[in-house]
């Protein structure tokens, strides 16, 4: 009985209410169909692949966030790391001559390096200048965006296009797509990152240490873990994954850097939300990212057919986080900031 009350009552009640209202209000049913169509329908399931494509970006950012959150580092500067990565990828893609594959690989590595270094910058601010990572990493988002915005609005601008965006990258360097779809191979890269993170988290000494440090940094120090090295390794890795996401967005989807393309859709913040929904468990990070990707593409579909603004998706995300936060579990230890 108590199990029923605590665990099953609300889910059942909610499902029941949804079913009843679907029967009573046929237009609601239409909206659900529109949502599902937006997330997974279209000709040849076009929208499903577009959801997957979005998953690779959100999921990548979620993995980046996961890496640092797992070790108790509150790096919420994913946006800046993503932007810098995307920008550097575009620069290399545009200006590096050579065979397409080589340009692609170099761009990926350069983007990861740039994203990683940008994250290390926040680490430098914390470790050397005592600015809490939470604030430092966040503040660095803004200069990153402004640098990118300046570069593609002025010196690197594709003037003929009429909007603030860079030139196209070399055609041969485009990330290949699965035939007949808009889904590029970036999703494979992110899946590989996801699997690697699960394996390291479970089976490597490094993953063990990071996990323990996330539970208690003092314990990690007193146990003799190489905490300083881990701190910078994890930050760099976190930033590098964000940088790789920037690469995928440029080489797989836009094929150039468009001002605001990585910031306005809130990829980084959605990644944070996905990690929180997954309760900082590596197995659930990518599924949670898929859920939010579907929420966004579904909302776009809903906007198309029912006229409901797609920003609804963000509202839903915000509400989900609030309820997750109140779920009682503390996700984040080591929260810096004095008043806390």
């Amino acid at each position: 009985m108590t199990l029923f009350r605590h665990r099953l009552f609300w889910p059942l009640a909610l499902t029941g209410a949804v079913l009843v209202s679907l029967v009573l209000f046929p237009s609601l049913w239409q909206m659900v169909l529109a949502f599902l169509d937006g997330a997974a329908g279209g000709r040849g399931h076009f929208n499903f692949f577009s959801t997957l494509s979005r998953t690779s970006l959100i999921g990548g950012m979620a993995l980046s966030v996961f890496l640092s959150f797992r070790a108790g580092l509150i790096n919420i500067g994913g946006e800046g790391q993503l932007v810098i990565g995307g920008l550097v990828a575009a620069l290399v893609g545009i200006y590096l001559p050579g065979p397409g594959v080589l340009v692609g690989v170099v761009s990926l590595l350069a983007a990861m390096l740039a994203g990683g270094l940008w994250a290390l910058l926040a680490g430098f601010f914390e470790r050397v200048l005592s600015v809490p990572l939470l604030v430092g990493s966040l503040l660095l988002n803004y200069p990153a965006s402004f640098i990118a915005s300046y570069l593609v609005s002025h010196p690197l601008r594709d003037v003929n296009s009429g909007i603030a965006q860079s030139h196209r990258i070399a055609h041969g360097a485009y990330l290949p797509r699965f035939s007949g779809t808009i889904l590029d191979y970036g999703v494979l890269l992110m899946a590989a990152f996801g699997i690697a993170i699960i394996v390291v988290d479970r089976s490597r000494v490094f993953g063990y240490r990071a996990r323990m440090q996330g539970i208690s940094p003092e314990f990690a120090r007193a146990s003799g873990f190489p905490v300083t090295r881990m701190y910078f390794q994890i930050l760099f890795g976190s930033g590098a994954i964000a940088g790789a996401v920037g690469f995928v967005a440029v080489f797989g989807i836009a094929h150039r850097y468009v001002d605001g393309m990585l910031v306005i859709p809130l990829y980084a913040w959605t990644g944070v939300v996905a990690v929180l929904l997954a309760r900082v468990n590596p197995l659930w990070v990518l599924p949670a990212a898929f859920l939010f990707a579907a929420l966004q593409t579904g909302a776009a579909g809903l906007e198309h057919s029912a006229g409901i603004p797609r920003e609804m998706a963000q509202v839903v995300q915000g509400v989900i986080i609030l309820f997750l936060a109140a779920g009682g579990q503390r996700f984040l230890q080591n929260t810096t900031g004095e008043g806390a």
Partner: peptide
């Protein structure tokens, strides 16, 4: 709820 998580939400 954690202040930071609530703030993000």
């Amino acid at each position: 709820g954690d202040d930071i998580v609530v703030s993000i939400g």
